[in-house]
Design a binder for these strands. Sequence first.
DNA 1: GTGAAAGCGCTAACAG
DNA 2: CTGTTAGCGCTTTCAC
Lengths: 347, 347
Amino acid sequence: MAPKRATITSIAKHLNLDVSTVSRVLNGLAKKYRISEKTVKLVTNTANELNYTPNKIAKSLRLKKTFTIGLIVPDISNPWFAEIALRIEKESRKVGYNVFLCNSSDDINIEKESMNLLAEWKVDGVIMVPIGLEYDHLLDFYNNHIPLVLIDRFFENVEIPYVSTNDYSGAFDAIEHLIDNGHKNIACIQGVVGTSSNTQRVEGYENALKKHNIPLDENFILGDDFNFENGYAQTKQIIKNLNKTNITAIFSTSNQITLGALKAMKEENINIPDDISIISFDEHNYSDLLYIPISTVTHFDDNLGKKAIELLFNQIDNKTSTQENILLPTHLTKRESVKNRLAKVTK
Amino acid sequence: MAPKRATITSIAKHLNLDVSTVSRVLNGLAKKYRISEKTVKLVTNTANELNYTPNKIAKSLRLKKTFTIGLIVPDISNPWFAEIALRIEKESRKVGYNVFLCNSSDDINIEKESMNLLAEWKVDGVIMVPIGLEYDHLLDFYNNHIPLVLIDRFFENVEIPYVSTNDYSGAFDAIEHLIDNGHKNIACIQGVVGTSSNTQRVEGYENALKKHNIPLDENFILGDDFNFENGYAQTKQIIKNLNKTNITAIFSTSNQITLGALKAMKEENINIPDDISIISFDEHNYSDLLYIPISTVTHFDDNLGKKAIELLFNQIDNKTSTQENILLPTHLTKRESVKNRLAKVTK
DNA sequence: GTGAAAGCGCTAACAG
DNA sequence: CTGTTAGCGCTTTCAC
């Protein structure tokens, strides 16, 4: 906090006016209160001279409104969450809001602590990517009338508004694409079990198999984290058991898993897509620059941030409390990481 | 802001105590003021029952200290800045500070606006990656006693503390590696002209050439942005003029430039490293998974965030005002994107 | 057209 | 051991 900056009071004293007058002028209420041109000029000029900086802390206390929102993400260094943060910050700025950033590090205690902190800061609302395994604390907040919107991960059958992407159909499409290309033994490297993103993606995987009458082998669903290490480890495992399982394709539920998988396959001299095909959730600007251009499920939508802010302000402004959940569409981008096994046969 | 939550006053009334007593108990000053066990229990219990949430806004106003810091970055969706944000958030949390996130979008007006905002919020200090072309507004703040630390980009000969990496020697090493492998016609795709990162990297490039008596061709220094598009466009240009310039290697000053360059070379069927070698600033977990494993200058250091926070708190706590600037070391990671042209000759 | 005064929730100096 | 009081900087109702 900077030392002895000019305040509304110091300006008032300086000019032998009342603080209320100064306040009105500085808030652009001059004509509403019919304050004389002269005073207005005087006030604005000295405010500039004295390098006056309004004190939002004081204002917030008085107004019982802070014009801030809280943003909690599991890991801001994950490009996907950073992308979300960018959108939220920009949209907030547009409506004159500032954002408090909290990184939960995928630790439920930090998530809870962060929510408390944000409550203590009296933020007007919070947008968060929850860790996604527990929601009682979120419900507490929501029911305590702290406007809340979940983004990316959410909870089914829990009354907290969210905006996310249609993970289910994205996964379904990906698997169907694999099946269309003659794959039957498809492994699925999953992320954090219990999160909506994972559940939906795995369900998409399972139902696509079902639709095409391919029996589900539970052992083909591997792993428990969206990170690089999990992708690497599970892929090593898959390669090891290749002659037992006859797996011909991997469905990766995240970009980081894919990177880990690529590393493992490279080390083991597995050829993509000839030995193993791979299709991955998450698109990046390097997706087609990897050693094999990866077919992906793209699910970024410019509306993600906008919609989240929209839902949040609906709550803040006490508008339609009609719970509105939003699921944005996905898109399949086909590249070279999926082999057409049917073509081979026909030829 | 949530409606009518319990306050220190409401608790006091409820218990027929004075607010000061409640305040003391809730701030853990019970024994210092020798408050009876009974009252302590009473207070803490009812605080819990009433779901009391301390109001940091009020506290800040009273204390003239907010326990918040501001963080401004040009683009939070850039993995490098996100990495920085992560470090800053974590370190801040450790010392009980919260962070306001601002994204300047590489727009100097937004940067200025953000600094004003942060000043209005009376943050205790700000850490920022400045856009890097202007610094008068930063100096204003710094001289106005708002603790400030620059990170990544900085200004030489300007008295604002910074922590960054040794871009100069990183570039120098990279170019020397190229030269050692027999390259003489080396293009440099630069980033934003005028930023310290760029200036240092280009100087490293120039001086390495000089040291090895390779004449500098100004036309070999191309571009003006750290982004993908610049990398793509300049590389297209380089390829077009290849038979005039006989360029055999590209020094890319950023990861995004490299990605753009890779895309261009792929499109034009340029073989890396046989036709053109490339060495790049910035290391990522996909650097060796690209279609050609890229030799890079790694410059992330876990200390970056810690040091920045340290410098900031030195200012906040009015400790050693001795301007301390920190330049973290870089490291060269050799992979397969640089061809040894000497070996070819000898064989 | 401008001023007086109360109060947002909290802390801390002073008093007892 | 606990209470009284002033005040952080601001907005806003009411008064003149």
